[in-house]
């Protein structure tokens, strides 16, 4: 049985125009790493959207996730919350198991 370690996964679904600001914030907070992915389609309080056929960034959504140590999550979360509080988006925090503890 491989040994694993419990960490926190912060996942943010956010409007594409906010991507640079979010990544700058994560850099400033010195999180050990993050990954950003394009979202293809969805439906929320503001209706249905599809990436296909969007002419600009407005209306596109992205997903950013990062793995954090449990004792850092509150500090990061409060800054992220302040950034996205008036924007369309979803923030979730989940427990995950990682194989390499010292990476995060």
């Amino acid at each position: 049985m491989i040994e694993t370690f419990t960490k926190k996964k912060l996942e943010i679904v956010l409007e594409r125009p906010l991507l640079n600001r979010l990544l700058d914030l994560l850099d400033r907070l010195e999180v050990s790493g993050y990954t950003a992915l394009p979202a293809l389609a969805g439906r929320g309080h503001d209706g249905v959207w599809r990436r296909e056929g969007m002419v600009g960034e407005a209306g596109q959504m992205i997903v950013v996730f990062c793995i954090l140590d449990g004792d850092r999550i509150d500090a990061v979360l409060s800054e992220v919350r302040e950034l996205i509080t008036r924007q369309i988006g979803i923030v979730t925090v989940t427990d995950v198991e990682v194989v390499r503890r010292d990476h995060f």
């Binding site: 125009p17 600001r21 002419v55 600009g56 960034e57 407005a58 008036r86 924007q87 369309i88």
Partner: peptide, 17 residues
Amino acid sequence: YIAVPAAMRLALPDARP
């Protein structure tokens, strides 16, 4: 419909796209 919508999402997020 390209530059301004993106700017509005940043500056006036309460406006409806």
